[in-house]
Design a protein around this nucleic acid. Sequence first.
DNA 1: TTTACATATCTAAATAAATAGATATGTTTT
DNA 2: AAAACATATCTATTTATTTAGATATGTAAA
Lengths: 100, 100
Amino acid sequence: MDIVEISKVLSNKTRVNILKWLKNPELNFPPHQDIDHFDDGVCVGFIQDKTGLSQSTISTYLNSMQNAGLVIPTRHGKWTYYRRNESVIKTYIEALKTSL
Amino acid sequence: MDIVEISKVLSNKTRVNILKWLKNPELNFPPHQDIDHFDDGVCVGFIQDKTGLSQSTISTYLNSMQNAGLVIPTRHGKWTYYRRNESVIKTYIEALKTSL
DNA sequence: TTTACATATCTAAATAAATAGATATGTTTT
DNA sequence: AAAACATATCTATTTATTTAGATATGTAAA
């Protein structure tokens, strides 16, 4: 859990939005066709549509978020689903509260 | 209080360190000569010495931290003292906890 | 077993951040 | 009033980030 690395992720409006949206997938994304739940998160395409940015940009964003530990990817067939990593998010905020 | 702007400040090791050091000025900096307290914070020169970066870089850093609301400057003669803005720091962490 | 599709990675261009030297500004001292 | 000093701002260079198009990879469907 690297404070600077995570702060870098949060220093971009789109990436902050993605994290916020993933808190409530039912509310922020259309339902998936192959699976009837959001337990493993949301597929890249839905996130891309919502942001309006290019596919490669969103893939890069999600990769940096994953490297920072903020999201967890799960592959379902040809789709990759991303969900929040609540424990890392919580640990980060705790670290700010105590060490900052 | 802008989450993205504050996160940008925190996405740099030196700036995070400055904020941490300012939590305990007596512990992290030599005593001031003209005033016998740290109530208004620490002068730029001390901060610069501690980081080893150039005067202009530290001045720029402190300016960006001030713009984000994280620190408060006070002029004492020819020195400018910087101290933490605890309420903004607290509000930022609270905002992360609720909105993130 | 091609073809189509979703996502990842590569490459490149534009923009922003980091950093320091030089100079300007404001303050104090002589 | 001039010299000295602390900090701020300006200018320029290097490095990182943003972003998208092109291409590669992995999976599923025809």
